[in-house]
Amino acid sequence: VAALIWEQDETGSETLRSNGSPGWHDETGQLHRAHALTWQHPASGTSGVHDHADPYRNLVLLKVRRRDRSIHPVIDTIRYGVKRKHHWFWIDTGRWPYAYGTADHRGEIVPAEATWIRSRVEAPALERLPYPAVIAEGYFGADGVLPRFTRDTVTGMISDLDELNSHPATMPGEFPTVAFHGDIAVISWQQHSLSDERVLEIDRCYPDAEGLYAIGAYQWTWSIT
């Protein structure tokens, strides 16, 4: 039956791959895998993938309709998420059968028990300009730290990016654009070809309970300045 195969690869990364035949391969001839993006906590040796796939339950069946008819088959959930221009697919491993869904933004950045410390961070995606932030102490993701910013700081990023994007030496699409839609920070990239110019939304960032924004989490490589 049509399914995504959920497994842990040799690096410990939690992956999904197609069970279609012929297989889905990347440009290097390897089986194409979608890697889960999650946190690492080296001090305790834990990571967001500790609930890894059970070898007896490791198929995400795409067409199975649950007894509860309010739950859509996974493939319908995925297609509906694409149609709604969502950016994320999630599986809740906390109970069986697993819950799943799509979202336009990512809710969980690190576990609730993380402590947050003041820092200054920079990312290549933002020309390594420094920004004040709080970072989750000891947690890492996307090869960097996981920061949260005030709305004022995000507003500063937006004007910095506007300036970078309007600079004559900047290539179209070299830097992202960020814009507030109400309380939501919308992150996009310009895509240019000879015949076409369009803006592709890649993520949305909602303010959390403290009004802070984990902008670029798991998308941009943030490091401490």
């Binding site: 399914a3 197609s18 279609g20 996974v74 493939i75 998420g81 697919f89």
Partner: peptide, 20 residues
Amino acid sequence: SKLWWRLSEVSPLAEHAVHT
């Protein structure tokens, strides 16, 4: 706890699995 993937990576895989 939730595991998160980019939808843009998962949706082509899912369509591939369904259509082959």
